[in-house]
């Protein structure tokens, strides 16, 4: 399993189509102290669905994470309730609040990400006729060579 972040290429909307290909799960993350970052989630979700072009867009697993909950309450700009309402409206997306800085909630969130990704992968393999990719890194022990 690989987890990719946007590596800064999102800054000027310069994520290439290759970035989205073959994803089994998409994590939408925002800053709970920044309303704009929350409001952008819907656009990111649309962009993902257009670029990744998944077989069944309605059931594609997204996970929403509100980060930076360690920052003092007075700075908080997006309430849990508002975030949950958004997730409910998008087909009951799992929602987590985390502090990456203090490692709060990160493990639970990524466990769900991993679980949903695996489920999605299984569902796809079943319908995919050719899953015959070659692992070109011969010294790798992460997965066996297809040949």
């Amino acid at each position: 399993m690989q987890i990719w972040d946007t590596a800064g290429q999102e800054r000027f909307q310069s994520l290439g189509v290759a970035f989205y290909r073959g994803a089994d799960c998409c994590v939408l993350m925002y800053d709970v102290n920044n309303a704009k970052s929350f409001e952008a989630l819907e656009n990111w979700r649309d962009e993902f669905l257009i670029q990744a072009n998944p077989r069944d867009p309605d059931s594609f697993p997204f996970v929403v994470i509100g980060n930076k909950i360690d920052v003092e309450d007075s700075k908080r700009a997006v309430s849990t309730k508002r975030a949950q309402a958004f997730c409910a409206s998008k087909g009951n997306l799992p929602y987590f609040e985390t502090s990456a800085k203090e490692a709060t909630g990160v493990e639970q969130a990524f466990e769900v990400v991993a679980r949903n990704a695996l489920q999605q992968e299984d569902a796809q393999d079943f319908s995919q006729e050719y899953s015959d990719a070659i692992n070109i890194n011969l010294d790798s022990d992460s997965s066996s060579c297809a040949c």
Partner: peptide
């Protein structure tokens, strides 16, 4: 495409 311009997730929502 029909993708609306994506807002940045930088602090204060401003594009660097």
């Amino acid at each position: 495409s029909v993708v609306p311009p994506l807002s940045g997730i930088e602090s204060n929502g401003a594009q660097n």
